[in-house]
Amino acid sequence: MNVVIVKNLMARLNAMGEAVLFLGDVLKVIFSGRVRFSQVLMQMYYQGVQSVVIVILASMASGVVLGLQGSATLQRFGAREFIAPLVALSLLRELGPVFTAFIYSGKSGAGITAELGTMNTHEQIQATRALGVDPIEFLVVPRFLACVLVLPVLVIIAELVGMLGGYIVGITQAQLPSAIYIRQTMQSIHYVDFFSGLIKSVFFSVIVAWICCYQGFFTSGGALGVGRFTTRAVAYSYIAVLLSNVVLTMFILTVWG
């Protein structure tokens, strides 16, 4: 019994070590300038297109829901006009980065893992090596960088769309004057709100890129393996985003308030 647990633990630690080495290889290629820009652009387009519609839908929906719930609950305290800051701050500080990272890992992240995993099972990663080309440079870094660059942009889009959703509810359902809603929003947002969200989203984007590229690059077990590693990549991304969000939030609140 104990032997099994120890073996399992060792395997886990081993995999984590491997994942760290993998990230090291990726960063080495990036910082030594071996970046294929046309590939990065292609991947950015591809990953962005994959996720943008669902991100917009989801953030519009959350903005609307925030507005509705806000107007219902704040009314009880006679503080209806605080809908605007409620919507803006929730989106900027928490919901925008976290939700978008979830959606992104479920769409584009899963796509990265499935693509790299399929290439791996069809020996295309080995073939790249056989052709004298570093597969990390040719196949992984473009996907990794695209993810790191696109996800934060989508977070900003999600925040703007979400605030629009809140605004629509605010001026129709809660019948706040448009000018007041907008002024309230502007006044309530401090630099820290925007930048703490942005820092989070950059952090999440690296985590999602790392996990999804790693799982794809080391996929084994044929078509079944591709399915297994892809769902694992998404699940690990969710967990990693949630946990790191707790740590980041505590950190940001202590340093910045």
């Binding site: 290439m119 020996e123 295309q124 080995q126 004298g132």
Partner: peptide, 24 residues
């Protein structure tokens, strides 16, 4: 090393059993 191997392979041609073409 890995880098030396990559450099060496420029002089190699390798046909994979299943072709291993890039499907993209």
């Amino acid at each position: 090393s890995q880098q030396q191997q990559l450099a060496m392979r420029k002089d190699f041609g390798y046909l994979f059993q299943e072709g291993a073409l890039y499907d993209f």
